[in-house]
Structure formats: structure tokens, C-alpha cells
């Protein structure tokens, strides 16, 4: 995984562990709740960044996988009284199976066919959520979804859910960093560099791409299940195309070439509206402006910022010495 990433994970885990201390400051006490949503979206954006940054594919359907996880967990636990953990697994299997079906034909082709396929897929899922009223209660949505629990401990409080979500997110992060720094990751990078070159070297491009797509779909599904058990209510608009686009935006703002960037992107896009609330009616304008400035001046995302700063500082230091 590399020493830098190990150190990164260590510091990041300590940060996550200590973050809830902000809950003691009244002005930012609600940040813990928001951080839960950062964690949930980070689970999806990390998978997406692997798909975009390494496999070079765009998905416009990840909100639908998020929704599949949420609805599978919600329906199985709230309507059929099934234990949440097997329900979560069922969501993962369903999402992975759907990802194989959607991904296989489109990922065998070169070009952005996956974007088109997932765009349509996302819409279909959204319509299903709205129209199968007997199962999903349609546009109204449904509640009474139980909290998760393990060995008699119920994840009821914000803090408990915070640690649960971030524990899962960090496990996913470690898993993805391992993939990236393995043979699979190198194969993916080579596909992104030049698909033809990679294939002549014996890399089965479409198979790797499908694998990455399925992994990212499964991760989105886990995020969806955790969402359902935390909020305890789900309705279709949360999982619409707009959210898929927002997820892409997070990956691009954070920096496509790194899973760390995906986390930063998720955090920024989730917190930004919160920080801009003081502008009242002009918050939307400022929101757009911030995003625009990042894209113009940091086309490789926020994660490239330290590198740029470092490079702009080092020549001066060298000339001084």
C-alpha cells in the first residue's frame, strides 16, 4: 500500500476518532450529523473515483445503486421483519448482480457507453421506486426502518452511527488502496493510459472494468443500507439523477486520480452549503462560484493542491540555499 498511504490512514483515523469532540462546541455541534453523510457519500465517491480515475469510465447511475441498497434494506427490515445484516448483504448481492447485467455489455465496448447505460438504468430504478407502490409506497416513501444493532448494542445515537459509518468507510478505503497498489490497480492504470497498449500486454480490459464497476456498485449499496438505517425513512428523490451528478462532481472537485481526493470532494460538497448559509439567498451563487474557481484553478481537483504548493515553494528554497 505504500508508507505514505499507511501514514495517511493512521492520521485520518485519528482525525475521525477525535472529530466528534467538535460536538461540544455549540456552534458546530451539528457537524457530527453532517459528517455521517460525508462518510456515506465518501463510500460511493471512493468507488466512483476508482471507476473514473483508474478505469476511465463514467457512471451516472450510482445514486440508483445507493437507492437499491437503501430500498432492499428498508423493505426487508421494515416490511418483512428480516434482520438488518442479512438484508444489507442482500442489497450488496442485488446491486452487484444488477451491475454485472448493466456493465457487461456496455463495458465490452470502447468509449463512454457505460455513462449512457447507467443514465438509463438510473432513470428506470427511479421510476420503479415511484411506481411499485405496493412495495415502496411510491412517491410518499416509507419509514419505521429500524436502527442497526450488533450483540445487543443499538446504533441509535448520532455518535454511534458516526463511528459505524466511518469504520465502514475506512475499511473500504484500505481495501481500495490495496487494490490500487496491486496488480489489478496497475492493470487499471494501464487501461486508462492506453487501452490498446494494455490489451496487447495481455490485460483483459473489459473484465477489469466490469470488476471495478461491480465493486463500486456494491459499495454504494452498503452506503444506501446504512443511510436507510440511520435516517429511518426513505423516499425516491434522494436517489435521483441529480444525486448521481452530484457524486461525479464530488469526485472531480476532489481529484479523480486519488481515493483520498474522493473523500475530500465528498466532504467539501457536503459541508459547503452549510458554510455558505450565512449568505442567505446568495448561498447558491457563492456555491457555484467556489466550484467554478476550483475547476478553473485546480483542474486536477483539490487533492492536487498540496503538490502544486510544494512544487511552487521548492524551487525558491533551492535557489536560496
Amino acid at each position: 500500500m505504500g508508507r505514505r498511504n499507511l501514514i495517511g490512514i493512521l492520521f485520518f483515523s485519528i482525525f475521525i476518532l477525535l472529530f466528534p469532540l467538535v460536538g461540544r462546541i455549540s456552534a458546530v455541534s451539528h457537524y457530527v450529523d453532517i459528517m455521517i453523510f460525508v462518510g456515506l457519500t465518501a463510500m460511493i465517491t471512493m468507488g466512483l473515483s476508482l471507476l473514473m480515475g483508474y478505469a476511465g469510465q463514467i457512471s451516472l447511475g450510482h445514486a440508483a445503486f445507493y437507492g437499491l441498497g437503501a430500498y432492499t434494506s428498508g423493505i426487508l427490515t421494515a416490511k418483512y421483519g428480516i434482520n438488518p445484516w442479512p438484508a444489507l448483504l442482500a442489497g450488496i448481492f442485488l446491486s452487484a448482480a444488477v451491475a454485472v447485467i448493466v456493465g457487461s455489455p456496455s463495458l465490452k465496448l470502447r468509449g463512454h457507453y457505460l455513462a449512457m447505460a447507467t443514465l438509463a438504468f438510473g432513470e428506470i430504478i427511479y421510476i420503479i421506486f415511484n411506481e411499485t407502490v405496493s412495495l415502496t409506497e411510491g412517491p410518499d416513501g416509507f419509514g419505521n426502518i429500524p436502527h442497526l444493532s450488533i450483540f445487543g448494542f443499538k446504533f441509535e445515537s448520532i455518535l454511534a452511527n458516526y463511528y459505524l459509518v466511518w469504520a465502514v468507510a475506512i475499511i473500504m478505503l484500505i481495501f481500495l488502496l490495496n487494490i490500487i497498489h496491486s496488480r489489478v490497480g496497475r492493470a487499471l492504470s494501464s487501461i486508462h493510459g492506453s487501452e490498446i497498449a494494455a490489451m496487447t500486454m495481455g490485460v483483459n480490459a473489459s473484465r477489469y472494468k466490469i470488476q471495478v464497476f461491480v465493486i463500486s456498485a456494491a459499495m454504494a449499496s452498503v452506503a444506501g443500507s446504512l443511510y436507510a438505517h440511520y435516517v429511518q425513512f426513505i423516499n425516491p428523490p434522494v436517489f435521483d439523477l441529480f444525486f448521481s451528478i452530484k457524486l461525479l462532481m464530488m469526485v472531480i472537485i476532489g481529484g479523480m486520480a486519488s481515493v483520498w481526493g474522493a473523500i475530500i470532494g465528498a466532504a467539501l460538497i457536503t459541508f459547503l452549503p452549510e458554510w455558505l448559509l450565512f449568505l442567505e439567498d446568495f448561498d447558491i451563487l457563492a456555491y457555484g462560484l467556489v466550484l467554478l474557481l476550483i475547476i478553473i484553478f485546480l483542474p486536477k481537483g483539490l487533492f492536487s493542491l498540496p503538490g502544486i504548493l510544494y512544487r511552487s515553494v521548492t524551487p525558491r528554497l533551492k535557489s536560496r540555499s
Partner: peptide, 13 residues
């Protein structure tokens, strides 16, 4: 719905 929940937490806390 997600934003509504965040905002309500903010109002309360």
C-alpha cells in the same frame, strides 16, 4: 430529505 435532516439538526443543536 437528507438536507432537511441536516438543517433540522442544525436548528436543534
Amino acid at each position: 430529505a437528507t438536507k432537511a435532516k441536516n438543517r433540522i439538526e442544525r436548528l436543534i443543536r
